[in-house]
Design a protein around this nucleic acid. Structure first.
Lengths: 147, 147
DNA sequence: CCGTATCCATTCCGATACTG
DNA sequence: CAGTATCGGAATGGATACGG
């Protein structure tokens, strides 16, 4: 049977996963955040088959995470750009990267994975704060509702 | 062919997705963060088939995201608890929820989705800060490396 | 109540070949 | 280069039936 759609879910986490929960999708977004624009660029870097990449790009455009623009150079093809909505996934990628770095051993090519381009400052740990400004951590916090 | 494994990837984002990128997996983690412990509880709430739930729970235990403990009450069965490692996924869930709330319309049962249990304070927007303390946003920041 | 095992249709994914 | 078309094996997901 078909996979259940979560697009109409009451939970915003579920709605988000419905859009970007497919295999490869968030890696495509990651590469776009890194500045990749072209089909072949993505295809080579990810090692995904062109078939699947086409499907994912289509879906991401349909969801307005990406948009197609005419290539900056003369080539008659198009480029894929993140929309404002797509850039909203930035914290998700940061959180995923942070988890992996802290919990899943691997030799990262560069230990500092996130750099602010403006002043070259390294990026600090992602923080979740309560209304009073205190930083929360999952250890000392229990949620009553996590929709 | 079989889906490509990303467990050995140099990128921590890819390594994380390799573990929690499967359909249903992060929703299971979400429910565990919300306090769910029992198989049937998860099964009913998610609407996932028992078959798949079994597989996902197995994988999560193998990855040490969840651990099985004897049930608190008399029942001879076991409960699934998040490990410390598993609680490390907290920011990922927060980021996903935030994206969904801001970008994917839906009627959430409760607009305030995250509550600090200690003092009942609502949780503020998730922030990513540079080393100098300045809050970064994807709009004004470009990354040179986002592994 | 807590799963496990089996079945089956559907979907997924990668490889390959092909088009403009 | 940027896809599209097709194919086959694998995995998915739901239903059901079955044990502890």
């Amino acid at each position: 049977m078909r996979r259940k759609s979560l697009s109409g879910a009451a939970c915003p986490i579920a709605r988000t996963l419905d859009i970007i929960g497919d295999w490869w999708t968030l890696l495509i977004v990651r590469d776009c955040l890194r500045g990749m624009r072209r089909f072949s660029e993505l295809q080579k870097n990810l090692g995904v088959s062109k078939n699947i990449l086409t499907r994912r790009l289509r879906a991401l455009v349909a969801q307005e995470i990406l948009e197609q623009k005419p290539a900056a150079d003369g080539s008659a093809y198009q480029e894929y750009h993140l929309t404002e909505k797509g850039r909203g996934l930035f914290p998700v990628l940061v959180a995923l990267g942070q988890f992996g770095r802290e919990n899943l051993p691997g030799r990262d090519p560069n230990p500092m994975t996130l750099v602010d381009k403006k002043n070259r400052q390294p990026v600090r740990k992602l923080e979740i704060r309560a209304a009073d400004g205190r930083v929360l951590s999952p250890g000392d916090t229990l949620m009553t509702r996590l929709h």
